[in-house]
Write a protein that binds this DNA or RNA. Structure first.
Lengths: 202, 202
DNA sequence: ACATTTGTTAACCATTTGGTTAAACTAAAT
DNA sequence: ATTTAGTTTAACCAAATGGTTAACAAATGT
């Protein structure tokens, strides 16, 4: 077997990722993916059978990029403070390089909530249990002000992810240009952790 | 002129809102909107000419529901603390009753950023200027810890809105059922303001 | 009563779109 | 050299979809 096969397959996947991430399942067109990949449309079906299956390949790939980052904050052994500092910085940095990713994943799970069930069954799927025990412990020990781990988790995710999803809206509200907004995001790599820790440090 | 006209028109708008908010421009089908309204598909074109124009009517209507709430926090004369308490409570309450709204608006602005330009020109479009001056003043007066108004604004929006947009994802991560998640959201009506104020109160 | 305007519908149309097919091409195996 | 298996393409197909039309129904004005 020649290696053109694998090349073509990964070329398709890359192109599909570009188009699906930008336009979503409903907005994407098989012809556009083929054009992006520079190949004949029939090849998409030759390698992936259907739009649905090609989409799922892209979706699972996208999700598997987001999950490990999360496992880090949830299962690391450092203090809650260290985790928050590292996580917010890493996550905002990471998403800056893949700005379409969170919006895509969230949008498609909203469109078809069955996806959430599917990905929950995967082994790398993040589990909040350990993080919750740790937060409860530090609260009891008086290191942190009383806060429910669930609320803290939601806050961390909200502050890290929303600015990317809501970017066009926020840009309009703040009346800033692209460059200024980038600077604000850059600043958030450190400022978000400070904001959170100011709130919960006892 | 009979009033059936206005009835039909508003029936269409209501149905279009239901379908567009759930499925977005790309996912929505004119036939589905007609079925939802219980009328013939041709009537959609009779009253709104095209899918695009019907969509725009729905979008502007949706946006005009979100904007006034924002103007409140930005232009009210109460202290920053009072604003944050009132805003987070009001906004989370409001969105609970219209859970598809923010996701829809953000998604469609992402799909077509020209929308952001269009709505910016409307008179009710929120302006952050006054809020910024107020925050800067309270920081200088030592009422608040140093924080940029822009970052604070993004934080408030993130903490209020993201839980609704990311709901299916958060539900999966937190491993909670619908009911538990509703309780968490309910709790956020008060807990978000406390979280923010703990962070920024000097 | 009658004509005219407005509202509503079923049938139809053109285009788009996901998907298929049969033929052509390529490269390794014999 | 010839066969064989895998790869790629142009042409094609059926269904879906936004939009139109022509006829019909219901109000409204005269």
């Amino acid at each position: 077997m020649t290696n053109t096969t694998e090349n073509t397959e990964s070329t398709i996947l890359k192109a599909a990722k570009t188009v699906f991430l930008k336009k979503g399942m409903d907005g994407a067109r098989m012809q556009e993916i083929a054009d992006e990949a520079g190949i004949n449309k029939a090849l998409l079906h030759y390698y992936f059978r259907s739009k649905q299956q090609l989409f799922e390949a892209v979706f699972l790939n996208a999700f598997s990029l987001l999950a490990p980052q999360l496992n880090y904050i949830l299962n690391d052994d450092s203090s809650v403070q260290d985790k928050i500092i590292k996580f917010t910085h890493n996550y905002i940095t990471f998403i800056s390089q893949h700005p379409y990713l969170p919006n895509f994943v969230i949008q498609e799970i909203n469109r078809n909530p069955d996806f959430a069930i599917q990905i929950k069954e995967r082994p790398q799927f993040p589990d909040i249990k350990k993080f919750k025990i740790q937060v409860d412990l530090e609260v009891k020990a008086g290191v942190l002000k009383p806060i429910k781990a669930e609320q803290l988790f939601i806050n961390i995710m909200s502050l890290s992810i929303f600015p990317f999803i809501g970017k066009p809206l926020l840009k309009a509200f703040l009346n800033t240009d692209e460059n200024t907004f980038s600077n604000i995001i850059e600043e958030r790599k450190t400022v978000v952790a400070i904001f959170i820790m100011n709130s919960i440090k006892a």
